[in-house]
Design a protein around this nucleic acid. Sequence first.
DNA 1: AATAGGCCCAACCGCTCTAGT
DNA 2: TACTAGAGCGGTTGGGCCTAT
Length: 334
Amino acid sequence: MGRSPSCDGETGVKKGPWTIEEDKLLVEYIKEKGHGSWRRLPKLAGLNRCGKSCRLRWTNYLRPDIKRGRFTDDEEKLIIHLHSLLGNKWSSIATKLPGRTDNEIKNYWNTHLHKKLLGMGIDPVTHRPRTDLSLLAGLPGLLAVAGNFVDSGAATAAWNMNALKLQVDAAKFQLLQGLVRALTTAAAPAPAPGMDNLRALLAVSTGGIDQNMLLQQCQWNDMNNLPALTSSAPTSGMHNISGMFDGFSASDGLSSTELGCHGGVSGRNGTVDPMVADDQECKNNGGGGVSCEETPASSPFDGLQSLNLIDDLNTDGGWKDLLEQMSWLNSSEL
DNA sequence: AATAGGCCCAACCGCTCTAGT
DNA sequence: TACTAGAGCGGTTGGGCCTAT
């Protein structure tokens, strides 16, 4: 199977931007004789380039059927739709957009569409509404708000930056674990794992437990053996995440010792990030000619409930209102 | 006007796949 | 069946351009 020698072994070949003269030589040669063997082409065409570079220049730039200019709205929608089905199979996507190259589509995705989807609250990898990550991203804010809200007494003073960082890290870890568990559990909703995560957060905030200990207690190593997250990830898993938010209530008491650890899950080796699991699954199936199963982008999505909840919280005073209800923030455990 | 930072995209790199022997 | 050369793919980079300060 060996690696292609490509340009690696060739010394003295020119690299970098193509000149007009080089373009002309390449176009004229291909027009007259076709490209034939890309490896032999440079010599025959009188170019001091490697064949690979010539192929790239031709297919991405010089080909006469290449469409130039901005992507239309229709093209944009088609790319997003195809990406939801095919993932980063740029060449496959390009075959559905006449005149566009895989490189062009890839660049457009990375520079425009990726951000656009994020801005719309859609995960560009899974094409699902973002819930977990926005929650994680919101944690520092949550803690800051909490710090400000718990009057200006000793509790606030105790929350120095290092402690905050530790809390955020620990909470992220807990939330990730809960999230992975939720996504890999096809059974009925887990009992409010979100509250368990918060309990862990508060337990750490007392300073009595460090992260290593937390990791051990939660058997984080077992997380390396996660079951495969297939494209048919159970919607009930998302429902579990919804349950996390349902767990935020005024009446919830907190125990500093209950960490919400349920041990690991057996099955898969590899990634612990469920957000990239589908993509990884594709890659693991093996490169180029592989067709990935369609992701259920258009399937009913129970997690929308959670998304709405996050949106509500992100509106003015949302988090503060929530925290006001969480009387436990004033508890001695802080 | 100068400069820093961000954006964009052409081109490169390294890997896998496929076809030929 | 095993091996190799060549082709193709996806990820990444670097430098030019644009914009904000």
